[in-house]
Design a protein around this nucleic acid. Structure first.
Lengths: 227, 227
DNA sequence: CCCACGTGTTTCGTATACAATTTCGCCCAA
DNA sequence: TTGGGCGAAATTGTATACGAAACACGTGGG
């Protein structure tokens, strides 16, 4: 049985836990992560932590500065715009493909996914809700069955999460927009053209809801964030 | 001035030299690279080599198999198709942007780049010619001034090089197609729409010139390839 | 003749030690 | 008070050591 997706690989496991902490906004952009501290928290040596850092750095989730250490990335305004431009180029087409390929099981899975997201909101776990909201896009590309583009989207969605952490003022109004529902409906009907259009609009909305002039701040200790 | 792009960073330097060896087809897909051997060739410890390997692995240039080692990646037919599908989605738009933004200096740079490529062909250094031919696409996106998408293209072009190594039969007829010249001409006239169209056709041609049924093979020793 | 098995060798995974660099507090002078 | 420099402490960069897993190969049984 390999239903247990726990990676037997230490560095993967730790990279994923760190990524989740960032994506759920438990670790604020700019936070410094010392190799020793992280290693001690997870009970591994710096060797492992460094490898995990390098992976996250390649996904632009953290910024690795030579002889200085690892910091949760702080996308600039320019990077934020680039990320959304890239998403606008890729995701609508993926939404179309997904709509054309989605099975009944896929649709059910996505509906369940949104269910979890709502549950998280209800439990006031906004970090997790935000993470799931991003994962929705990743799942969509998975259905489109394009692994290569999926890896790009995964990175872009992750970076979007950082952008949101930095430039989103009104937190609690999160993705209430039922864009995801609309998307699923279009997919359930196999309407690729509509799905593509809805996705385009959804991404534009997301970008428009940011205030790129102001940056929110806030920090938290490592141990608390990685519990 | 930062015209000196020599990385003071050992792992970056080694990752780049390995990447170049792969991109110039001096290292054939499937070749195993032992950490010890590579470390000895470059005069660094396995620590550095491992870090470099992890980077290349993230770009899918090498395949890292746990407890087995690092192998030059061998993209499957499916991956090959995905790579070109992704390029088809991104590059035409980038060609348009580049055409609309290119300065006189940019055009001159690209022309010179093609000049180097022809020189390499003339010197029968087909590996280098192929590398430069790929770099042309990367430079194009650089002109389009989209760093995020540029990083994706860089990866896709690299993987394309592996695809070509595996699935290209008639080697010596390389990119003689003057698609790159046509592209530059369109850019010089600032004709974005044309550049977009030419790029689309160029990528389709490239894909069509592959024979995805047959795989070429061939290998070479590490020390020779990394001299 | 072929396949299963055990042993020695190679290669990788991880921890740790030490060197190099940065950071921070402290003192002193302007 | 403020700014600069000096040294100690902390943190990262790299090499190395040792345990563990995979591989190579020779041996013996079927």
């Amino acid at each position: 049985m390999d239903t247990d997706l726990q990676p037997a690989d230490n560095v993967t496991a730790i990279a994923e836990r760190l990524a989740l902490a960032i994506l759920e906004h438990r670790l604020a952009p700019g936070t410094k992560m010392s190799e020793d501290d992280v290693g001690e928290i997870f009970g591994v040596s710096r060797t492992i932590v460094r490898a995990a850092f390098q992976r996250l750095s390649h996904d632009r989730l953290i910024d690795l500065r030579r002889n200085r250490g690892a910091f949760v990335a702080q996308p600039t305004v320019r990077e934020a715009l680039e990320v959304f431009e890239a998403r606008a180029l890729l995701e609508p087409r993926m939404a179309r493909s997904a709509a054309e390929r989605a099975t009944r099981a896929d649709i059910a899975f996505l509906r369940d996914h949104i269910g979890q997201e709502h549950a998280a909101i209800h439990a006031r776990d906004f970090g997790r809700a935000l993470y799931l909201s991003g994962q929705f896009h990743v799942e969509l590309v998975r259905i489109a069955d394009q692994d290569t583009i999926a890896s790009f989207i995964r990175q872009l969605v992750s970076r979007s999460s950082l952008v949101i952490a930095l430039y989103w003022q009104r937190r609690h109004a999160l993705c209430e927009s039922d864009a995801h529902h609309t998307l699923i409906d279009a997919m359930a009907r196999g309407d690729g053209a509509l799905a593509e259009k809805v996705m385009t609009a959804h991404l534009a909305d997301l970008l428009a809801s940011l205030d790129l002039r102001r940056r929110t701040s806030g920090t938290m200790s490592l141990k608390d964030a990685l519990s």
